[in-house]
Amino acid sequence: MTREPRYALLKPHTLRDLMGRTGDGSEISGRALAREVGVPHGTIEGLLNGKTTTQPASVARAICRVIGIDVGCLWAETGRKVPDETAGEASGVTA
Results as ranks from 00 to 15, higher is better:
40 P>W: 07
70 D>H: 11
44 I>H: 11
75 W>Y: 10
40 P>M: 08
68 G>T: 03
68 G>K: 03
62 A>W: 03
50 G>L: 06
46 G>E: 00
41 H>R: 14
45 E>G: 10
53 T>G: 12
34 A>Y: 05
63 I>Q: 05
72 G>L: 08
67 I>R: 01
41 H>F: 12
32 A>H: 15
63 I>E: 00
55 Q>Y: 06
61 R>H: 13
35 R>L: 14
44 I>C: 04
35 R>D: 15
52 T>R: 15
34 A>K: 02
72 G>D: 13
58 S>N: 10
60 A>L: 04
36 E>P: 05
32 A>I: 10
52 T>K: 15
63 I>A: 04
36 E>R: 15
49 N>E: 11
49 N>I: 09
67 I>C: 00
68 G>M: 07
39 V>E: 08
75 W>D: 01
55 Q>F: 03
73 C>K: 12
63 I>H: 02
63 I>M: 03
66 V>A: 11
64 C>K: 01
58 S>I: 04
43 T>S: 12
69 I>N: 10
36 E>C: 14
31 R>T: 13
66 V>N: 03
59 V>Q: 14
45 E>I: 11
60 A>G: 01
67 I>P: 05
66 V>I: 15
69 I>A: 07
36 E>G: 10
61 R>E: 15
38 G>S: 09
43 T>R: 14
75 W>C: 04
63 I>G: 04
55 Q>L: 12
71 V>C: 08
51 K>T: 15
49 N>F: 10
29 S>F: 07
52 T>I: 15
64 C>A: 05
44 I>D: 10
54 T>E: 01
31 R>L: 11
62 A>N: 08
57 A>D: 14
36 E>T: 06
61 R>W: 08
57 A>W: 05
44 I>K: 02
52 T>D: 11
31 R>C: 06
60 A>W: 09
39 V>Q: 01
40 P>G: 14
59 V>C: 00
44 I>F: 10
30 G>K: 00
72 G>Q: 11
60 A>T: 00
67 I>H: 05
49 N>W: 05
44 I>S: 04
73 C>I: 12
